[in-house]
Design a protein around this nucleic acid. Structure first.
Length: 561
RNA sequence: GGCCCGUUGGUCAAGCGGUCAAGACGCUAGCCUCUCACGCUGGAAACAUGGGUUCGAUUCCCGUACGGGUCACCA
């Protein structure tokens, strides 16, 4: 085979006039402090943001910002078939809700459409065709890539095949041999073939001409896995698809080089194609970035096996968490606990600091995948919410409620001070109450503070003497003074208990329960049920203070009236 | 099937050749307490497996098993 590669390059890319050097000059090295990390999140706009996607996002964001570097967003829309309209916009909005800040890249413009900010754009791959072609042409001119022509019919057939299904039922050995033979056969062509195909308008793809020896191994460092060894790539994989748009591999090399990424953080599913990427960087003359491959989050299936958290699973879609009532901060903090094993320790020592103060440590990352655990998420969430001030809870809850519980939102915002006072119960001290795991817990917890929502939900315990209930309520009304301090108030309740034959002192009651009809706990229970409708509620004294004498009496009267 | 990654209690995990093998969640016994929510003190519960190396392996090496990923003109 005798090919003039420069001529081939000109034939294939007649429109490309810019040299690779000129192109690179347009994107000069970033001026950043020593050690600064440039990372990115590079999703394809094929749907919602996956919960697992939050892992590389958080790591990239932390590592970049912690080091004085840059974190940017690139939209990888190179697969027109799978692109979902509006997905890019949706994913930007979701990430925004999670407080993820991008320094540059794709952002939402004033018209609600994706646009760019930053000097290394465009940040949407579909807008970067000319850049890829500059480097594709270079590879062809150097004899490192070549075209493979197909007919329209073959292309159409290709698009119809379901690769996933096909791969499962394959004779692997035969398939590999056939692929190998086919690959090699495409390497044989003449300039006349190319000219004829081009003249006929036949579509073509550009493949890398790999001189890699598959028998040899390549070693490299992964930031979480350490030293790894893999076979050198010997596959002429596709660089440019027949529509002229690059595959992930090629786009990755060109983009991350031009955009100055120095640390690529991605899911471990990319590990097997790393030899391809390293080879590409080498052929292109680019310095390869550092890599970090993050393990997948799994779930347990019906058979007790670990499975990748898939699209259909509960909790896969980040937006689901808002529906379930989780605060984004809680989800983010849960992710951090999984990402860095010493995060919880740090959090316990620094309850008041924002998570961005946590010194994120690559060494503390685990190489093994983990199971999604709702119980742990709930615990983290409960703690996150308990640390918030009443003011914060009010703001965040009402914001959530405006979308998911408009009635509550209307009720609370009608009297913000009252609502905040309710949220302030048991909050702020060393041992704050932890009543809420998710925002949906708020409504049943505080419904009785609103007359429209109040109802008797629980029943008196079995064997309760209703005469005692009435007597206790009557006596309580007679002695109640809103001006009382908590102790004075409680002393009155104790006195009532004693007068009815109930133990005023719990210790005495526990020492000999048979000596009393019940205890002051029972008597408080009578009042609590009448006033809150429930057997369980926060401190009754405070509840009454908030409700006010009139509303308390109105509720008590239902039992003695 | 080839290649690759992983494997400490139910879950997430400390550990980095000598530990009674941390801690958190969950479970559980009890204490505290006017109920609840907290908080506190306990408890049950783990190094997948077989070979090496070593005075000594959870820790290092090899094999096996199991789990996961990947093998597209998808990312």
């Amino acid at each position: 085979m005798d090919i003039n590669y420069q001529k081939l390059a000109d034939l294939l890319f007649p429109h490309v006039t810019e040299t690779p050097e000129a192109c690179e000059a347009r994107f000069p090295a970033r001026n950043l402090p020593e050690g600064a990390k440039v990372t990115r999140f590079a999703p394809s706009p094929t749907g919602f943001v996956h919960f697992g996607g939050l892992f590389p996002v958080m790591v990239g964001e932390r590592l970049a910002h912690q080091s004085g570097g840059v974190f940017y967003l690139r939209i990888e829309d190179t697969d027109a078939k799978r692109e979902v309209p509006g997905a890019a916009e949706g994913l930007i909005t979701t990430l925004e809700r999670y407080g993820i800040h991008f320094d540059e890249g794709a952002i939402l413009g004033p018209d609600g459409k994706v646009t760019d900010i930053g000097d290394y754009g465009p940040y949407k791959q579909s807008l970067r065709a000319h850049l890829y072609h500059v480097f594709a042409k270079k590879l062809v001119a150097e004899g490192k890539a070549y075209p493979v022509f197909t007919t329209e019919e073959e292309l159409e057939a290709l698009k119809q095949t379901d690769k996933k299904a096909e791969i499962k039922s394959v004779d692997w050995e035969a398939e590999a041999a056939a692929r190998r033979a086919e690959m090699l056969s495409h390497r044989e062509f003449t300039m006349e073939d190319v000219e004829a195909n081009l003249a006929a308008g036949n579509p073509w793809v550009l493949r890398l001409l790999s001189d890699g020896d598959g028998e040899k191994k390549i070693t490299f460092q992964d930031l979480v896995r350490g030293k790894l060894e893999m076979p050198v790539n010997d596959e002429d994989f596709v660089l440019l698809k027949s529509d002229g748009i690059p595959t992930y591999h090629f786009a990755h090399a060109v983009d991350d080089h031009l955009m100055g990424t120095n640390l690529v953080i991605r899911g471990e599913e990319w590990l097997p194609s790393l030899p391809k990427h390293l080879q590409l960087f080498y052929y292109l003359g680019f310095k390869a970035p550092k890599y970090m491959h993050i393990s997948q989050i799994m779930r347990l299936d019906e058979n007790g096996n670990k499975k990748k958290l898939s699209k259909r699973d509960m909790g896969a879609n980040l937006d689901d968490y808002a529906k379930m009532g989780y605060a984004p901060e809680a989800v983010a903090e849960y992710v951090l606990t999984l990402l860095n094993s010493n995060y919880e320790e740090w959090r316990a020592a620094n309850p008041a600091l924002p998570y961005t103060d946590f010194p994120f440590n690559v060494k503390k990352m685990s190489a093994s995948g983990c199971l999604f655990d709702f119980q742990k998420l709930n615990d983290v969430s409960k703690n996150v919410l308990s640390r918030m001030t009443a003011e914060e809870v009010y703001a965040k809850y009402t914001a959530w409620a405006s979308e998911y519980d408009p009635e509550m939102k209307a009720l609370l915002t009608a009297n913000p001070d009252y609502a905040k006072a309710i949220f302030a119960i048991g909050r702020g001290g060393k041992k704050p109450r932890k009543d809420f795991t998710v925002w949906t817990d708020v409504r049943p917890y505080l419904d009785f503070f609103y007359d429209g929502l109040f109802a008797i939900k629980d029943a008196f315990p079995e064997g309760t003497d209703m005469d005692d209930v009435k007597a206790a309520i009557t006596a309580f009304k007679a002695s109640y003074d809103p001006a009382d301090e908590m102790n004075a108030w409680f002393d009155k309740v104790k006195a009532i208990a004693a007068s009815l034959g109930y133990a005023a002192d719990m210790k005495a009651y526990k020492a000999d329960p048979t000596a009393f009809k019940g205890s002051v706990a029972d008597v408080s229970g009578f009042l609590r049920l009448a006033v809150t409708g429930k057997l369980n509620a926060p401190d009754l004294y405070t509840v009454m203070q908030l409700l006010g004498r009139d509303r308390v009496f109105a509720r008590l009267d239902k039992f003695v009236g």
